[in-house]
Amino acid sequence: MNSLATITTRVAEAAAPLDGRHPIAPLLERVRAGRDFGPNVYSTLDVLWVLYDRILRITPATADDPDRDRFLLSKGHAVAGYYAVLAAKGFVPPGWLDDQGGPESRLGDHPDRTLVPGVEIGSGSLGHGLGLAVGTALGLRAQGLLDPRVYVLVGDAELDEGSNHEAIAYAGAAGLGNLTAIVLDNASATHGWSGGPATRFTVNGWTAATVDGRDHDALYAALTGQHGHRPHVVVAVVDHEEGR
């Protein structure tokens, strides 16, 4: 698997992970602190940025507002870009990024909602976010909070966990129109998803869009493409080797 070309690519990434084009590049560099991040970190940056910059109705001032949109990061290992985005948007002080994972840090290698402002769930063990998102969507609906949307980000390999499929089937049957799942598809599932991850959702009544996970306008259109009373899934495809 580790072809020379792959290794060369990764070395190049480590040297210049974001080539300065991304607005949160300096913040991510503070989290990175010279370490070599895997492709999974970079593969989620674009969708995180589009969500926090253009879609989610949430600010540090409304982080506890019942009417806020929710973003649940289920693949908790994609945390470096998440922290950088939260810092860019003022949820956490940039200074917190410098000792990420340290003994006094509130920022672990997986996020803890009780330690980090703006973080909706603690995650790390795969397959928990979608169920929590379904419960959150149901809880909002039960309280007549019909404006907020619930977004949950999972990985294509994370979909291996059967708990996701309990949630996908039920959310479709329950018509949870306030729920949007995002599958970050970097083709990392060991046995793949023949026909694409979206089919696992659409067969259960979800609407779906599959887009280039680096194309901000395409992501924006897909992430705001909900219609009506069905849950919505956006499959964001990113290059497996480059992961960016």
Binding site: V134, T136, A137, A142, S163, E166, A167, A169
Partner: peptide, 24 residues
């Protein structure tokens, strides 16, 4: 909206409970 039978899905049953609690 408050009596939720998720079917024979115990992982989801508890995940849903967690989500409900997070909304108050």
């Amino acid at each position: 909206d408050r009596v939720l039978n998720v079917g024979i899905r115990e992982q989801l049953m508890l995940g849903v409970a967690g989500g409900l609690a997070l909304t108050g």
